[in-house]
């Protein structure tokens, strides 16, 4: 018995461990490449397709070719450029408004003591799970009453339902992590709450505001249901709906080339920003969720 154990011991040579470690590492790298392929290939293929026109589009050659036909056509199309402008206005305004509202709210929720704080936090959390469809009839009425139907103003208003809870939540968790003594020092220096917020907190919140703002911007930029329902005419459409409605001249000619080009145009700038702010976005996305 002891002999057998001794035997197995001796067969475990260092080389065996080295081999096993290498195999493990190779396996993991292969898995990593697979994940990379899975997440990136569709977008890569969209880019490749967007640079192909005519019968070239149907080639399954994986290497890119450069042909700007679709891009030129799109940028000359007033409906599409108008949609980009609309989306910029809508997402920009929504983001700006929610950041202003959320910064003030986050200061109160993260820093001040008052009765009912938990209730407020819970209320805000509950709003974030409202299905959009559930508020749509009431929102419809509100939008009509305000005279915003078929105007992009309706979207700026409606999008607050998801950007405000989200930004409040993320910024609150950020404000909470602020050193307590820094705030106390400001109080000692005679700062009102307003002054603490604007002179001490805000200058230090720049990065957090940028990443939270970018996330809110993406949410608003990508929204589809309200944009589809509250806007009737082409000139007021936002980008996602515009892309969703691009159609060919006939039933059989399905314009995938232009659609891919449009997709690339409206996503590439955002993706660059996302990659630049990658780390902060990840912490922004998860901070809100883990604490809930």
């Amino acid at each position: 018995m002891t002999e057998a154990i001794a035997n197995t011991r001796t067969t475990r040579k260092p080389s065996r461990y080295r081999w096993r470690r290498r195999a493990r590492k190779t396996g993991m790298v292969a898995a990593g490449l697979l994940v990379l392929f899975y997440t990136l290939f569709p977008y890569y293929w969209a880019i490749v397709s967007s640079f192909r026109s005519g019968s070239q589009l149907f080639s399954s050659n994986l290497l890119p070719t450069i042909d700007f036909t679709h891009y030129r056509a799109l940028l000359a199309d007033p409906v599409f450029t108008r949609a980009i402008l609309n989306s910029l206005i809508v997402a920009g305004s929504t983001t700006l408004i929610s950041l202003v509202l959320a910064t003030a709210a986050a200061y109160a929720l993260g820093r001040l003591n008052f009765l009912g704080k938990r209730a407020v936090l819970l209320t805000i959390l509950v709003v974030s799970i409202f299905p959009q469809i559930a508020v749509m009839p009431g929102m419809f009425e509100l939008v009509r009453w305000l005279g915003l139907y078929n105007r992009i103003g309706s979207l700026i208003l409606a999008y607050l339902i998801f950007t405000v809870p989200f930004t409040v939540w993320v910024l609150t968790s950020f404000v909470r992590e602020f050193p307590r003594e820094l705030e106390e020092a400001a109080i000692m220096d005679g700062c009102s709450h307003w002054r603490i917020l604007t002179r001490i907190l805000l200058p230090l919140m720049g990065p957090a505001l940028a990443s939270t703002g970018l996330l809110a911007f993406i949410l608003a930029w990508n929204e589809f249901l309200f944009a589809l329902t509250f806007i009737l005419s082409d000139e007021n459409r936002t980008v996602p709906v515009a892309i969703g409605l691009i159609s060919g001249s006939s039933r059989y000619e399905y314009p995938f080339g232009p659609i891919m080009a449009a997709s690339v145009i409206v996503t590439l700038p955002l993706l660059v920003l996302v990659l630049i702010f990658q780390r902060r976005i990840v912490s922004g996305l998860t901070a809100g969720a883990i604490k809930g």
């Binding site: 003594e181 109080i187 700062c191």
Partner: peptide
């Protein structure tokens, strides 16, 4: 606090970083 005529020195110094 600011009108009590006192000053406070904090453990972490609490200097405004910006």
């Amino acid at each position: 606090a600011s009108e009590r005529g006192i000053a406070f020195v904090f453990q972490s110094y609490a200097l405004y970083p910006h």
